[in-house]
Design a protein around this nucleic acid. Structure first.
Length: 141
DNA sequence: GCCAACGTTGGC
DNA sequence: GCCAACGTTGGC
């Protein structure tokens, strides 16, 4: 089964890439949107996710890997929500800003552009590769 | 800080 | 099951 690609959005003040790097592993919880949750439930171990800083930064800063598939969100006191665990794979050599994503014709269909508010999004393999090349980054296995 | 977009809730 | 009202997100 081929690896699938996602995008995880976070306020860096809340949980940043640097924090994930120093933690070495993080729990992605607190998602309270059904569409986002449903995407999390489709994530498989080994899938890659673009790590996107929203708010002030507005840029893709790194690649994370799903290391634990969905389980009940420990922070959800009510409702049916899920969490996954991630680890940092690699920082982008050059962060890719939202501005550049929007200016790139081949990325015009990205969910990030079309449905900006969705916090957990699917990403096409072609889009994922494009972001990496715009970020001057080659993943080292 | 504003506000458009959009997801959720609840009355009918 | 529809849809108006409401709340939240996030880009600008």
């Amino acid at each position: 089964m081929a690896r699938r690609y996602w995008l995880l959005k976070t306020e860096p003040e809340e949980y940043s890439w640097d924090r994930l790097v120093s933690d070495k592993r993080g729990t992605w919880d607190g998602v309270r949107n059904f569409s986002a949750r449903n995407h999390m439930r489709l994530m498989k171990q080994g899938d890659y996710a673009l790590f996107y800083h929203t708010g002030k930064a507005k840029e893709v800063v790194g690649v994370a890997e799903i290391v634990r598939e969905h389980y009940p969100d420990p922070t959800a006191t009510q409702g049916d929500f899920s969490a996954v665990d991630v680890r940092p794979v690699q920082a982008l050599s050059a962060p890719v800003t939202l501005q550049r994503v929007k200016a790139e014709p081949s990325l015009s269909e990205m969910v990030l552009v079309r449905r900006a508010r969705l916090s957990v999004q699917p990403v096409l393999a072609t889009e994922f590769k494009k972001i990496l090349s715009m970020g001057k980054t080659k993943l080292t296995p």
